Amino acid sequence: MSASRPIDYSSAQIALHWLIAALVLFQLIFGESMKEVIDAAEEGKAMSATDAALGNAHYWVGIAVLALVALRLALRIARGAPAPIGEGILTRVAAGTHHLFYVLLVLAPVTGLLGFYVGEPWGDLHEIFKPIFIILIVLHAAGALFHAFWLHDGTLRRMLVPQRS
């Protein structure tokens, strides 16, 4: 990381955050079609055009998530991230949540690809990540709203407004 921490996130960091969030939401909502595609292929049955299209989208969106997360991590290493506002247990919970997000954002696409090309147990492991992601997203959003509407400390604003000059 850089010697001095930035005050806010850059435009690129903010854009990557929200783009990855949108892609993960797409995966969570439409990802079940991939299971239908794999089940149909294993059973030698025809699949619906919708499941085929959404399964294909799930595959490519997963690869996009993996590539964008790699870019986001590289940018974070090169540029750094602002220091947390506040201290104590909430700061440690937030840090742990962010670290777990990064781990899952890498492991979910990797295990998805392994499940697709290699098979079990990777596919089963990949499916476990969905409820974990949902819990983390709820926790993350609740934390952001808590900071915005209870603490009024500007934490959420940093992920909405690019770095000041």
Rank of each mutant, 00 (worst) to 15 (best):
L136H: 12
Y59R: 05
A78W: 11
G88D: 07
K45G: 13
T155L: 07
R92D: 06
G31V: 12
R92N: 13
I128S: 11
L151D: 01
P131K: 14
L151V: 04
E32D: 15
M159W: 03
S11V: 02
P121F: 07
A70T: 12
G154N: 03
A74E: 04
V118C: 04
I134K: 14
M159S: 06
L125T: 13
I85A: 02
I137G: 07
L25V: 15
R158Q: 06
S4L: 09
T97G: 11
I89F: 11
I135Y: 15
T91C: 06
R79A: 03
P109M: 05
W60E: 00
T50Q: 14
A53F: 09
A49W: 14
E87W: 10
I135N: 06
K35Q: 10
Y102N: 08
H98Q: 13
A15N: 00
R164H: 03
H147S: 04
F149Q: 00
V118F: 10
R164S: 04
D124C: 04
A142L: 14
A21G: 11
T155F: 08
P131F: 08
A12I: 02
G88L: 08
A108G: 01
H152N: 12
F116V: 03
F133R: 08
I14H: 01
D124M: 13
E87Q: 14
T50Y: 09
G115K: 05
S10M: 00
I137S: 12
F30K: 09
H17V: 02
R76M: 08
D153V: 04
I128W: 15
H98K: 14
H126D: 09
E43A: 15
T111W: 01
A57E: 00
L73T: 09
S11W: 04
K130E: 14
L71V: 12
V118R: 02
P121R: 10
V69P: 07
P82H: 01
G143H: 05
I135L: 15
R76C: 07
R5Q: 07
V69H: 03
L114H: 08
S2Y: 00
G62H: 04
L16K: 02
L100S: 11
R76T: 06
A15S: 00
L139Y: 10
L19Y: 01
V93P: 13
Y117H: 10
L73V: 15
I14K: 00
L19P: 01
L54S: 06
Q163L: 01
M1H: 11
S2F: 00
L151N: 03
G112F: 08
W60D: 01
R79L: 02
G123Y: 13
I135R: 08
I134W: 13
A3G: 05
L75W: 08
P6K: 02
L145V: 05
I132W: 11
V65A: 07
I38V: 15
Y9W: 03
P121Q: 14
S48T: 15
E42A: 15
L139H: 04
V69T: 15
S33Q: 06
T155E: 10
I77P: 01
E127R: 15
R79N: 07
I135K: 02
G154K: 03
P84V: 03
L28F: 12
L25P: 05
G55C: 08
I63A: 03
L71K: 07
P131M: 14
A12P: 02
R92M: 14
M1S: 04
A148Q: 06
H17K: 05
V69I: 13
M47H: 09
A40H: 12
A81K: 02
